[in-house]
């Protein structure tokens, strides 16, 4: 059962990764007893599983994911939402209104209009149907303030960090609230625009240097330094 790669090696689609007693993980596929890469990325093994961390990918909806989307269109009994995925999502009017929805009484565009941004959860999705969203949980719904930032969806786990270490550190240092849409859209809400800018700068740095080790420490340092500068300016 040979393995044909070194840890974290850059591979291209179609490269033979392993042969024999291995399992095809993310972004790989199996043909006979051979495992090949399906995307450009960095290979790694997890026990018997061969994974490729993709460098280019797009968001595929999964039930239970929190996503941030923009309302594309107001329909008869709901909204169409762009969630930066091959499929646009649907949000039903009865889900947003706490009472039964009657088309003659309710004007949907007054609740959510085209262009509005929402935080939502994927309620259902399968091959045959477009994803359906729900906002019926605390923390979900229309976004009224804050700033939006887009990153490659594959980089979101890096922004979260091991057991959430990275994201909780940024939240603590900048005093911002951060909501990570698994579709690669991030909402940053802080007390001041400066705080938000700082958090955005940190997240952008994470995206660029997502493959380096000791990143959490460097981001902490970056945030502390920038915060010092802001404070100095205030004192002057």
């Amino acid at each position: 059962m040979p393995i044909f790669f070194e840890k974290k090696q850059l591979v291209t689609p179609g490269e033979l990764l392993a042969e024999g007693d291995y399992l095809a993980g993310e972004n790989t596929y199996m043909e006979g007893n051979k495992i090949y890469a399906a995307r450009i990325g960095l290979v790694d093994t997890d026990n018997k599983k061969v994974n490729v961390v993709a460098l280019r990918a797009f968001y595929v909806p999964k039930v239970g994911d929190i996503v941030i989307g923009a309302v594309l269109e107001v329909g008869f009994n709901g909204w169409t939402v762009d969630i930066k995925s091959p499929y646009s999502a649907l949000l039903r009017a009865s889900d947003v209104l706490s009472r039964p929805f009657k088309p003659q009484n309710d004007e949907l565009s007054q609740v959510l209009n085209a262009g509005d941004l929402i935080v939502a959860k994927i309620a259902s999705y399968d091959r045959a149907h477009d994803p359906q969203l729900t906002v019926g949980e605390p923390g979900l719904g229309k976004i009224t303030r804050g700033q939006i930032l887009k990153v490659t969806p594959t980089k979101i786990p890096r922004v979260i960090g091991r057991k959430g270490s990275m994201i909780s550190m940024i939240k603590q240092e900048t005093g911002c609230q951060i909501i990570l849409g698994l579709n690669g859209v991030i909402l940053v809400t802080g007390k001041t625009p400066e705080d938000e800018e700082l958090a955005i700068e940190a997240i952008k740095k994470i995206e660029q240097e997502s493959h380096t080790s000791g990143l959490t420490d460097r981001i902490t340092q970056l945030l502390k330094e920038s915060k010092g500068k802001v404070e100095e300016n205030k004192n002057e």
Binding site: T12, P13, G14, N27, Y29, E31, Y36, A38, R39, I40, A54, R56, A57, F58
Partner: peptide, 11 residues
Amino acid sequence: IADSGVPMRDL
């Protein structure tokens, strides 16, 4: 296509 991130069996 490979650069766009669409999974491929091979180039």
